[in-house]
Amino acid sequence: MTRAEAFSDREVAMCQVARLVENGRTYWAAGGGTPLYSVLLGKKLYAPDAQYITEDGVIAPEPMLPFEPMMTMVASRAVYRALAWGTMNSAGIHAQLGYMDYGVLNTLQVDQHGNINSTFLGEYGGSGRRFGGPGGADTIAACCWRTILITDQERRKFVREVDFISSPGFLDGTPGARERAGLPEGTGPWRVVTPWAMYDYAPRRLRLIARVPWVTVDEILAECEWKPLVADEVQVLEPPTEEELQLLRTELDVRGQTTDAAGSWITWDGEKYIRA
């Protein structure tokens, strides 16, 4: 493992999620993009016996990489060498039955209780901005045992309360709120990963547990609209490795689709990492 010397914000987040991937567990990766690339990165480098599904009901594929542009589901390369081919309902029902250990999602906006907004910024029905909706994320967030959320570390994305709950976190944060809303018992958000930081829930409320070496806790907190809990000891995350980046860039995100959209570059100046 060689520490890399130049990488982008979003590559950092994907590498951190990849390291969370465990053997013998099932992952439901939302859509294309960062969730799917993170799970594949983890499976290829760290946990070959981690299995994943996507919304079209494919089970445990060994995709022929790279994907063609925008063809991360249904297309033959994406579902190659799977153990089973299904449908959206089979994916949803398998999650409903408890077969999905982890859901991996990305989003526009997250709040202190892990609720996710991918529908509307501003007052719903008012003058705000419409987005695409939850897609499969609502079922992933409701029915997988644990959910891992990938997002950017920006004040407008880390809000006290989301404008619209597209996919459920711990709702109002009170004990049993999910169960009272009819969601399966014992499920819920588990980690939030950003290019700068990692959070868990203590309990049902976001808590900062780790940071990358090139930002301080204060810098992270300045990019939250409210002050999350902070662990007594905030761990320092390892930067991406050359092996991770090579795989990401040459086999997964070969067109820079997830990495060129936002964020900055981090480089090693001989003594320390600096953000460009």
Binding site: A177, A181, P184
Partner: peptide
């Protein structure tokens, strides 16, 4: 009956019932 969708804002703007 479904095990997802409860608790969301979408629920309030849909034909679902709890």
């Amino acid at each position: 009956p479904v095990r997802s969708f409860g608790g969301t804002t979408g629920f309030d703007h849909s034909g679902a019932k709890l």
